[in-house]
Nucleic acid binder design. Structure first.
Lengths: 119, 119
DNA sequence: TTGAACCTTAACATTGACGTTAAGGTTCAT
DNA sequence: ATGAACCTTAACGTCAATGTTAAGGTTCAA
């Protein structure tokens, strides 16, 4: 599929998709006329990226996370890189903190809404 | 306390604190010499703001959330504004999605780390 | 075969959340 | 009473993620 369809189906803009490719989060084949050509799995990938970016992660971090975020069946690196592992461990801790904070925030917002609703 | 102390105790920079004030997330009294003057509760507030911004929320959203995020004992508006409520409801749903996404991501990163660790 | 709707690269513009610098006033220990 | 360490406003710089525009090539239905 071409970039327009991928954009529609993933909820991103073509500009964003091109940017993600530029940042090495995504690759594309090319048609004979140099149009980007995507397969079905790209939709899922772009949705993933959008979710992570919306969650506040940078493309730099996503670049590292993404290969590990394709389900428990994803390919493992032949020789696991300790630098990557350290980076991911740090990022995991960061994610935990972020999640805790958001949950706290969510609870408080919900609490507020409950009180307003009832009154 | 003055801005330097608040910065130290909250873990923010003076620049950030001034920015939050500019964005109406924070207010300050002034000394006779026009220095910003904060009370103890400001520390907590700035920490809150930092957490929310780190979590990916914008100051525009935080401006609405913040009055509702001061614990279950916070003051309720005299006449609850339906526009605010709607905004908060939308933001709550957004937070839920964000949290779900992050948890999924965390699980996958953890799963990856587990597999690398064991090998 | 043409024109509307797509695609390409390149480049400049914008936005949010700051950092940094400049030019000056304040506080306080010595 | 002075100098270091604070504070003020104002303004310009930066960075990531994206919008926007320009100048063109491609596809396809009428």
């Amino acid at each position: 599929m071409r970039i327009g369809e991928l954009a529609q189906r993933s909820g991103a803009t073509p500009r964003q998709i091109r940017y993600y490719e530029e940042q090495d989060l995504l690759i594309s084949a090319r048609t004979h006329s140099n149009y980007r050509d995507y397969d079905e799995s790209s939709v899922e990938t772009v949705v993933q990226i959008r979710g992570l970016i919306d969650a506040g992660l940078s493309t730099r971090v996503i670049r590292v996370l993404l290969p590990c975020v394709h389900g428990p069946g994803a390919e493992l690196p032949a020789r696991p890189d300790p630098v990557i592992s350290a980076l991911l461990t740090a990022e995991r801790d960061c994610l935990k903190d972020r999640i805790d904070h958001l949950i706290l925030c969510l609870d408080q917002v919900q609490c507020y809404l409950d009180r307003v609703e009832v009154s």
